[in-house]
């Protein structure tokens, strides 16, 4: 590149593709029929997409909170990147939920409309969120962030991998995009788990504590909500109980390499999927939704 032509180099209009959002957004749904397929119940599809979308949205929020607090600059970039991928997945899934739901009342409660990603993200209260509680737990230290990411991304990758053959072509396309992203997230978390578990005495102790704190929340990853059961039966969803063996094998292998003990399996339960959340979610939503709710009907 010629340095005398630096201004020209900057003005070159060749960098649109670099932007994942805003400009040059690659639409994973391009060319896909977005109508609800025959044999798929719209309300169940919407409820199921909300579950997967809320997991991604809330997990992304917790990772966004790391911004400017990461232990090194390389991790600032990596955690922000993972947060962006999950935010992207949340947007597609919430938009799919809104479309499959048919019409509903918008935030001004005056208009019947197809709910947008923003209506669903910013104008639902905590009991209407369908994420698992693992993602809403407040942040702890970096070991907590890494162990949560390992547990979450191992589980989510197993789900998304199966959803690539969903009977809903939109969900299948979203899953196909997500598989590539979450495979990287899982890899990143696994490498850090091994470094921290098999690093210093302090890092081992902190990682073990994070595992103790987070492990009880894994029971919920395999509990089967009524909507999930019907979604699996109708061929557009996955029965979460089916991914437990893969989760146990992958997590077990990583923990062994990290010189960490693998805790005993936690009995499956349903909580967040049915709207039962900890107080932490309310606080998270107050932060996330406050400005949007102060200006109902505004466009940003």
């Amino acid at each position: 590149m010629s340095f005398d032509n630096a201004l020209g180099a900057i003005a070159e209009d060749n960098d649109e593709a670099r932007w994942a959002f805003g400009t040059g957004f690659h639409d994973p749904l391009a060319g896909i029929d977005a109508s609800v397929p025959d044999g798929v119940d719209g309300a169940d599809l919407a409820a199921y997409c909300l579950m997967l979308g809320d997991d991604a949205l809330v997990m992304s929020h917790r990772l966004q909170e790391w911004c400017t607090h990461a232990p090194e600059l390389e991790e600032e970039v990596a955690l922000a990147n993972i947060a962006l991928d999950l935010l992207g997945q949340a947007r597609l899934l919430l938009a799919r939920a809104g479309a499959a739901m048919g019409t509903g009342q918008d935030e001004t409660a005056l208009t019947e409309t197809v709910l947008t990603e923003d209506a669903l993200a910013f104008f639902r209260d905590a009991p209407e969120f369908r994420n698992v509680r693992l993602v809403e737990e407040p942040n702890g230290d970096f070991a907590h962030a890494i162990v949560r990411l390992l547990l979450f991304s191992t589980w989510r990758l197993a789900l998304l991998d199966r959803l690539t053959s969903s009977a809903d072509p939109v969900l299948a396309a979203v899953a196909a995009k997500g598989v590539k992203e979450v495979a990287y997230h899982r890899d990143h978390a696994a490498l850090w788990t091994i470094r921290l578990g098999d690093g210093t005495e302090e890092s081992h102790r902190r990682t073990r504590r994070a595992l103790d704190v987070l492990w009880p929340a894994t029971g919920e990853l395999f509990g089967v909500h009524e909507v999930e059961r019907r979604a699996a039966a109708a061929g557009f969803g996955v029965d979460p109980a089916d991914v437990r063996a893969e989760f146990d094998a992958v997590v077990g292998e990583v923990l062994a390499a990290a010189a960490l003990p693998c805790p005993a399996p936690v009995p499956a339960e349903v909580a967040g999927r049915g709207g039962a959340h900890s107080a932490a979610l309310g606080a998270l939503l107050a932060d996330m939704q406050g400005l949007a709710r102060a200006h109902p009907g505004a466009t940003w």
Partner: peptide, 26 residues
């Protein structure tokens, strides 16, 4: 403002921008 951005699109743009700044620092 990342966690408080009032739309998901603005949140994504802002998060990407702040990530770019970390990259510039690197």
């Amino acid at each position: 403002w990342i966690t408080r951005a009032p739309s998901l699109r603005r949140k994504a743009i802002l998060l990407a921008k702040v990530q770019d700044e970390a990259g510039h620092g690197l």
